[in-house]
Simulated assay, not measured.
Amino acid sequence: MSAKTTEKIKTYNPSRFREKFLGEDNPIHLLFKSNSDHFFCLEIEEIMQMQYPVPPSKNSCHTLIFITSGKHVMKLGYQEYITTDNEMIMVPAGQIFSLDNVNNIHKGFICLFHPDILIGKYGSREMLNEFDFMKISGNPKVAFASKDVPDITAILNRLQKEYSETESANLNIVQLYLIALFYEMNKNLVKSTKSISAAEVITNKFKELIHEHIKTNHFVHYYASLLNVTPNHLNKSVRTVTGKSAAKWIDETILLEAKYLLFQTTLSVSEIAIQVGLEDQSYFSRFFKKNEGISPIQYRKMIDKS
């Protein structure tokens, strides 16, 4: 990372975070050496100056965080994950996440990489299906056995070297090391002794589908038809696995998408209503206030003041 980029990050003012986030001097964007690379890998200590709360957000890149000492708390969607020593969490591109800060992280690595890096000379979409942590509905966290930690650290050190010591990262090298890392992660995933139930299969597919279609369709019967089940069967399966109805999952996903758009874009409330498939602005505002307790405009003002 260049001294100029480091200095920009150090002088970053958290009180103007939303404005910075929307501009070219977004602290994450500063770490990309070029728009074509869209890759960086650094020790967490190098970017500790970037501590700030992050409301619901999305990134076009996959984010991988490995903690060797300390604790990291992040929400993916509405699920909170605590990552601690010798654990790794993956935030898939397009997944909505939020966090308070990174004050409790002492050592580790953070790596961001564009999905296109994985589909190239050595990769394929079929291969990526092997990695559950890359899916929106998958388990994003992996705990490593002590004996495997040196191997994980070695891979991340090599990725860091490729980022820090070269003019432009060799993406073929990056891809190979990432694939090796993914297979190490797969090896350390806790395998369940029980087979996955039919309800869990349906629920996982449903979660993937609402992530893909939330901007265009909000009806349980629509998702049931895509899954070739009845709406009643879909609802029963989702409630059995998650404790919430399919309709509740749809509503929460609309709300989360709206919160992300209120924070991470300059779209007006009426434009955001259209983006989440609720073209009536007044209905959207009532929906948002019913579920969040404040109006969309109040939510955006709250973020700007934080």
Rank of each mutant, 00 (worst) to 15 (best):
D280H: 08
G77W: 00
E208F: 05
Y299K: 10
T84G: 04
Q298M: 11
T166W: 12
V73S: 10
E7N: 08
Q160L: 13
F113G: 04
F144Y: 08
R16T: 12
A224P: 09
A199R: 15
Y222N: 04
E279H: 15
S98K: 15
T83G: 00
E7Q: 11
S237Q: 10
S36Y: 03
E7W: 04
Y78W: 12
F288D: 00
T203W: 05
V229K: 11
K194V: 14
N291A: 13
S57H: 07
A93E: 10
Y52E: 07
G123P: 07
Y283F: 13
T203H: 06
V201L: 14
A154T: 03
S268Y: 03
D304T: 01
T266F: 12
Y52H: 13
E208G: 02
I155F: 01
V149Y: 00
I67P: 04
L181P: 00
T253N: 08
Y78I: 11
R18H: 02
D25P: 01
A198T: 14
S60L: 12
H218T: 06
V190R: 13
N26L: 03
K71V: 02
L261I: 02
S69L: 06
W249A: 09
Y283R: 13
I82P: 02
Q95H: 12
D251Y: 13
K10A: 04
V269H: 04
E43K: 15
K20P: 00
H62I: 00
V229A: 09
L227G: 00
S195E: 13
M134R: 12
L64C: 04
V241W: 05
L278C: 14
M127G: 03
E167P: 00
M127D: 01
L64F: 05
L226W: 02
L128P: 00
E279P: 09
K215S: 14
E208D: 12
K215W: 11
S295F: 12
K194I: 14
D251L: 10
N35G: 12
E43M: 08
E279R: 15
K147R: 10
T6A: 10
L99D: 11
I202V: 15
E24T: 03
S225G: 01
L118P: 07
E162I: 13
H106A: 12
Y12E: 05
S15P: 07
D25C: 02
F40C: 05
V54N: 13
I28D: 05
G123Q: 08
I67E: 04
L189W: 00
F39Q: 01
G120W: 11
V54R: 08
K305W: 01
I196D: 13
V269G: 03
Q79A: 11
F32N: 10
I65M: 12
G138M: 03
L267F: 13
I65H: 03
Y299L: 05
E80K: 13
S146L: 09
K4V: 07
T266E: 14
L234G: 04
S197C: 14
Q175C: 10
N86K: 09
L118E: 03
